[in-house]
Nucleic acid binder design. Structure first.
Lengths: 249, 249
DNA sequence: ACCTGAACACCGTTCAAGT
DNA sequence: ACCTGAACACCGTTCAAGT
């Protein structure tokens, strides 16, 4: 790994500028559309100079991902749809922890919704992604505050992070699959049309979902499954017959 | 899309052979290690002949993925860890549907565990993946049999499929991140060691998970989160105040 | 300390030519 | 109908040479 610039004396680039431009290119052209040559051209510099700032394309992608995950960590404007399931407890600490898990997950989803290439790149585990680790930390702390056992904390944190990345990736891939020149409306029509073909004759359930699919909302869909997980975690936390959570602090 | 071979008269290749060899290469070398030149060499033929069977690398990957998903659909040897949560209902139809969702999910996970490149490629939605669509269909039918509303079926099916792909992808990525020449034991040690470094000084929760992580089991971890989702779906199905599910048949 | 661009070793894809 | 391999248009990465 090359050194990061300590002084900006003669630099015409900066790491931040490179990463920001890379993110803009990724948003426009997708992961395979990000090219080091293209990036150099966009930056108005030579191809090789990028290598003074990052070790290669993989590290550049790591940085781009972690930058956006970092924005999710500090975002306070992520949409927060109301919970549709009853958590069925009045334990304020548990409820607050559940709200924290929801808030982080929804903020992550908002970034992955805005940047359709992100979910597929998001190894939230794995080192050299400091902000991803911070996501894990915050989810884990919330589950600990709920009073879950260490084992439940461990399993619960991977369930939440896996769910977020997986559902976002599926949704992003679905959007990629259709002609992007069409309107949102027409894309949905095109897919539902395909479901009427004879290839789907033995997939009646998918066909029956045409109505749901036509008026579906990615955010509501994401939140619905998330809340199933949150509900399950809260049930574990308040289930009788288990030792109470330790006092905080 | 080129035609598929109707006769095998003079063919030295077949589509099945190409896909199977590609899967073997993917297992050995990963997604970026699968090369059309390498594949041609392994098949003992020319580079161009592959293009008579598949339109390109993307279609080859689609076929490889869908082949393995198809194996998950017919597998009856996938490990089935017992449920650790109480479903708290004796409705036989609901319990059977829950078992079906669990069985499909665990069979998919088994494939993704065995083929670490699979999860990252798995757009389960999206057409031109017939077996993936069949997974969706089967999960959806089970949720319908539970008596969930169409909206709950729709949200539930994306939650399950998203969870499976997401958790499997995270676990596969984690395994990639460490030196594969080391033993399983040593890889875990290496990661936990890193957690003791000062970079993790403000990530105390992650550090506290060292014990859990050292003796973790991917399958148990996957099943634990899956069961949270299944529990949530069953709660929705049996919650009072909703119209009963229609009789079957 | 930071930048440049030619050079290298690869890719996936195409296609005229074969059998 | 099926196969071949040279040719093309790209990649990411390296590195000697610049300022």
């Amino acid at each position: 790994m090359p050194g990061r610039p300590r002084t900006t004396r003669r630099a015409t680039h900066s790491l931040d500028q490179i990463v920001d431009t890379a993110i803009a290119m990724l948003d426009r052209d997708g992961t395979s559309g990000l090219t080091l040559r293209g990036l150099a051209a966009e930056l108005g510099g030579g191809l090789g100079s990028i290598y003074w700032y990052v070790a290669g394309k993989a590290e550049l992608l790591d940085l781009a991902c972690d930058t956006l995950i970092g924005r999710a960590l500090t975002a306070d404007d992520a949409p927060m749809p109301p919970m549709e399931v009853e958590l069925d407890t009045d334990d304020a600490v548990v409820l607050e922890a559940a709200a924290t898990v929801r808030r982080i997950s929804l903020a992550l989803f908002a970034q992955m919704d805005e940047h359709p290439w992100l979910a597929a790149q998001s190894r939230l585990g794995g080192a050299d992604r400091p902000n991803a680790l911070r996501v894990w930390e915050q989810v884990g702390r919330a589950l600990a505050a709920m009073g879950l056992s260490p084992r439940q904390q461990f399993h619960g944190s991977t369930a939440i992070t896996g769910y977020v990345v997986g559902v976002a990736a599926e949704m992003s891939a679905q959007d990629d699959a259709v002609d992007p020149t069409l309107s949102q409306e027409e894309q949905l029509d095109r897919i539902v049309e395909r479901w009427q073909g004879e290839a789907y004759d033995d997939l009646p359930w998918i066909r029956s979902m045409a109505d749901q699919f036509r008026r579906h909302d990615d955010l509501a869909q994401f939140a619905a499954g998330l809340d199933l997980l949150v509900l399950g975690l809260v049930r574990q936390a308040v289930s009788p017959g288990r030792p109470r959570r330790p006092a905080r602090g």
